[in-house]
């Protein structure tokens, strides 16, 4: 056998063997549990208080706010809403609140103070874009519905799905939901939110990675704890991504 052939066969066998070992390590339940320990450490260190994400000047806004996440919902209902200025759309707030309510876009625009922020959106994949988001503070809407004392988490149910009828969803705890920059945004760069970016209403949490900022939100559910039909607290969280998306 030629030496080169031998080396390349030996090398690729070695590498394949390594890959097999690494894969079995990665799939090991104990290893997975161990890898969650630093996540809890990060959450404990970083997820408290209300540090403000940097806000930028208008000149820093990216020319195109790249789409993250799923394509716009394909349902006939969503199509009708988008064609008629969101006439039938409602945001429903339910669960552990004293007064469950629903709002159309006009109610959100007129009932609550209008807030704008130019912040950076960091996708978990690694890229960043800067955009100006305008809407209402999440905490203003929640206070309007008066959460009960046992409220622990706010779950955002969305209209978009992954193509297999599994809907997108996300969650924040009450402290994160009270962050002054946690916004329910109806405008991006002074225009109604484009379809690809989550029209008509999108959560925007600039202190965490992009997947936390759920698009196409139509139902906010206040719960005591996650689990049950709220899984690990998000579509991507159910697929091994961290619930605390600050890193």
């Amino acid at each position: 056998m030629k030496r080169v052939t031998f080396i390349s066969i030996a090398g690729s066998t070695l590498l394949t063997g390594c890959s097999g070992f690494v894969t079995s390590l990665n799939d090991n339940a104990t290893v997975r549990k161990a890898l969650e320990v630093p996540e809890r450490l990060n959450t404990a260190l970083l997820s408290h208080g209300h540090p403000l994400a940097r806000e930028y000047a208008e000149s820093a806004i990216s020319p195109d706010f790249r789409q993250n996440g799923f394509d716009p919902p394909s349902s006939a209902e969503y199509g009708r809403w988008s064609a008629t200025g969101w006439a039938g759309y409602r945001l429903v707030v339910s669960g552990l609140v004293d007064s469950p309510r629903s709002y159309d876009l006009a109610a959100l625009r007129h009932k609550f103070p209008r807030r704008s922020q130019i912040t950076r959106h960091d996708c978990v994949e690694g890229w960043s874009v800067i955009g100006k988001w305008t809407g209402v503070r999440l905490t203003d809407v929640l206070q309007d519905c008066i959460p009960k004392p046992q409220a622990g988490f706010v779950v955002f149910h969305c209209l978009d799905d992954d193509g297999t009828a599994t809907r997108y969803y996300e969650s924040l705890n009450m402290e994160q939901a009270a962050h002054p920059q946690a916004l329910l945004a109806y405008e991006l760069n002074d225009r109604p939110v484009p379809l690809k970016n989550g029209a008509p209403l999108r959560l925007k949490v600039p202190t965490q990675l992009g997947y936390k900022s759920a698009k196409y939100v139509n139902h906010i559910e206040v719960v005591a704890r996650l689990g049950g039909h709220n899984g690990k607290g998000g579509y991507w969280e159910d697929r091994d991504y961290e619930w605390f998306a600050g890193i």
């Binding site: 590498l15 394949t16 390594c18 890959s19 690494v22 894969t23 990665n26 997975r32 161990a34 890898l35 969650e36 320990v37 630093p38 996540e39 450490l41 990060n42 978990v124 994949e125 991507w236 697929r239 091994d240 991504y241 961290e242 890193i247």
Partner: peptide
């Protein structure tokens, strides 16, 4: 290539978990 990454298959979520754990 797969032989240089951890995990070998495309898997951002677990790549992040290994990375952040071993950063600590």
């Amino acid at each position: 290539p797969a032989w240089a990454t951890m995990p070998p298959q495309q898997d951002l979520a677990n790549g992040r978990r290994w990375h952040i754990a071993f950063a600590w």
